Amino acid sequence: MERTELDEARLQGQAEIWRYMFSFADSMALKSAVELRIADIIYSYGGAATLSQIASCINDGLTSPDITTLARIMRLLVRRKIFTIHHPSDGRDSLYNLTHSSRWLLHDSEQSLAPMVLMENHPWQMAPWHYFSQCVKEGGDAFKKAHGCEIWDLASRNPDFNKLFNDGLACTSKVVTSAILSGYKQGFNSIGSLVDVGGGTGGLISEIIKVYPHIKCVNFDLPHVVSTAPAYNGVSHIGGDMFLAIPNTDAIIMKWILHDWDDEDCIKILKNCKKAIPKENGKVIIIEIILKEDGSGVFDEIGFILDLAMIAHTNGKERTEVEWKKILEGGGFFHYKIINIPSLLSIIEAYPDDK
């Protein structure tokens, strides 16, 4: 490599380190936009609003918004293509517009990621990321190192964190549920009863029963979780522990559950699943990320980022197909098939016996 090319490569390398060093600025700017409801404000103006209009809606009557700070945050978010900006030729104030990205930040939208943005970027959730090097050196749970307890324990005794956590998961459930219902249409037809293991406040199972009212549906999670779940027609909420026993049923569905646990715990859960379903025609529907080492799909890179989130928040991990096969067989499921859906997640349909 010639000297000029080497110098350019080193300069590019330096620029990339600066960018990664401050990459948290993107998520903090995004979080502030959600907290200030900027996307909602722009939407209320028909999809285009001036900076002054945005600021006027932020004003709560007690404080006066700093419009210069707002402009600087919006400048970065425009550069990141979260919003766009239009400069009218007649000299009027510039207009900020929504994009396909910022429409996912609308609080009242049927499908919104706003609660997840707030949850993942809350100081409670961010603190464990600072313990990665310590986890490498000595092992252990990053969340426990940061807070002195596991994430589930904090949720059970802190109502504010429990709500933040459940709201975040509920919004992602809505997003994923539409993909499941569109991509797994034939999968529910032959099921008489279905238990959503780790179903949270029942978002997924309540949508399934709307489309498949013939199914007897149970939402199963820890008692402190189901105690806050709303009532849904045709859905029974049952509190319990999936490590001890799971209610008997024709089929089990688990969305984003097994990635929270290590292989040994996943095998325990799957063995309890096997006990709960019939040997003939029983199945477990697992909805998870399947990592692809060299994947170039629209969501493939996010999978590896979420794998690090598992280090931060749980003792689990995202898995490749080979790794999924290992724990499925360990739990007594020797046959499975993968069904791709329009989502970050895929469906793994697993059976207790060869079919």
Rank of each mutant, 00 (worst) to 15 (best):
A229C: 12
I290K: 09
F161N: 10
I82N: 05
A146E: 08
G47P: 15
H335F: 10
K31Y: 11
A9F: 15
I347H: 06
G46D: 09
Q134M: 07
M254T: 06
L118G: 01
A142F: 03
K274P: 08
H107P: 00
Q12V: 09
G91V: 14
G297T: 08
V218S: 06
V117L: 10
I348Q: 00
S343D: 10
E293A: 14
E8H: 08
D241F: 01
M126P: 02
A15C: 11
L222R: 01
C135Y: 08
A9E: 15
K174H: 12
L345Y: 07
G192M: 00
T228E: 08
Q111Y: 10
Y43N: 11
A127V: 06
L11P: 04
Y336S: 13
S343I: 00
H107M: 13
Y184S: 04
K185P: 05
I290T: 11
A146Q: 14
G148V: 10
F334A: 09
D167R: 12
I38W: 14
H335L: 11
L106Y: 04
F22Y: 11
N121Q: 12
H130M: 14
Q53V: 01
D300F: 02
G187I: 07
I209S: 00
V218I: 15
I205N: 01
K185M: 06
A142K: 10
K326A: 13
Y336F: 12
F22D: 13
V322Q: 09
G199N: 07
R157Y: 02
I253E: 03
V226G: 00
A9T: 11
T201A: 02
L244F: 04
M116T: 09
E323K: 10
I339S: 06
A49K: 05
